[in-house]
Computed example of a mutant assay.
Amino acid sequence: MKLLRDTWLIYQQESSLMFRSKTLILFSMAQPISYLVLFAPFLKSTLAGQGANSYADAYRIYVPGLLVAMGLFGGLFAGYGLLQAIRAGIIERCRVTPISRIGLLLGRALMHVTLIVMQGVIITIAAIPLGLRVNPLHLLAAYGMLAMMALMATSISYDLALMVRDQNSLGMMVQTTSQPISLLAGVLIPLSLAPLWIRDLALANPFAWATDGIRALFTGHGGDDVVWQGALIITALAALSVVLSSKLFNRKIA
């Protein structure tokens, strides 16, 4: 109970700070909205072989990849906030309080998860006038997978931040790894269009499984095996990443 209470307290504090920064929220939405409006229309002819006979079909294929990209990039850059909190002495001051260190980390992570899911909701709403139609239950399941993805990416970012303790080094590591991971996840163009060797390589990428699962939900194939497989893989890895981050946090913030 104490861990839940401490996590909730930190989550409330971080969320209140986030919602005060309207500029941050607006600018975080600029890139995905521009991709939604400017990039997706090119996909109708590109994805014709994937069953995209209309712009609505193209958005059902493209929007899930965009959500995964937001979860991946938004989560991996979360480590900057942790480094700023460490340098500002916020983490140091929290150490002298009875707050659980795991709750201190998890509360911050869940704030980022909330922001990413909110962005996903906004992107989905913005795509509705463009023709997107999704089963509400499938949409909720997709948001659940997005939340697990964001939690895993955020925990990984915290691990990197705690190990390097430098914003420049963190930026280089995130930029270097996030691009190939996103490409191998098929976030912009489905991996079914890729050569066989890339599809085989993508099998080791958990974000690719999540992308396929969310894409199946958006296209009305909620009963496909890839849905439960993607959900299982991403949830298990999210739980594992949180445990590893908590141990590293306890060791580094001594």
Results as ranks from 00 to 15, higher is better:
T176P: 05
A153K: 07
M173H: 00
R165M: 05
A202Y: 07
M118N: 05
L139P: 03
A150K: 01
A142I: 04
M145C: 01
G186T: 10
V134G: 03
A142F: 02
V164M: 02
A126T: 07
A185V: 14
L140I: 06
D159P: 04
I116V: 12
V187H: 09
A141M: 02
P195T: 15
D166N: 15
R199Y: 11
T114P: 05
Q167I: 10
P195F: 06
I198E: 10
I189T: 15
L115C: 00
G120W: 00
M145W: 01
L130S: 12
L191W: 13
Q167L: 04
A185M: 13
P190R: 14
L130H: 02
L140F: 12
I116E: 03
M163H: 13
L201S: 14
I198D: 11
L151M: 02
L203T: 15
Q175C: 04
A153S: 06
L130M: 12
L183N: 14
L137S: 11
D166L: 05
P195I: 09
S182K: 12
Q175D: 07
Y143V: 00
T114N: 08
M145I: 06
Y143M: 12
I122Q: 03
G131Q: 04
M149H: 00
L146R: 01
M163D: 14
A150H: 06
H112C: 02
P129M: 12
L191E: 11
N135H: 14
M118L: 11
T114R: 08
L162D: 04
A185T: 15
T177W: 02
L170A: 12
R199K: 14
A202T: 12
I156S: 01
M148H: 13
A150M: 04
S169M: 09
L140A: 10
L191F: 03
N135F: 10
D166P: 08
L193P: 04
V113T: 04
L130F: 07
T176G: 08
I122W: 02
G131D: 06
P129Q: 13
I125S: 13
L203N: 15
H112M: 06
D166C: 07
L160P: 03
A202G: 08
L132K: 05
A147C: 00
L201D: 14
M172W: 08
L115I: 09
S192P: 08
A126W: 06
M173D: 02
G131H: 04
M145G: 04
L162N: 06
M148F: 11
L132E: 01
M149C: 06
M118W: 08
V117F: 10
S178Y: 02
T176E: 07
I189E: 11
M118I: 08
I189V: 15
Q119R: 05
M163W: 14
L191S: 12
I128F: 13
I125L: 13
Y143R: 03
M118F: 13
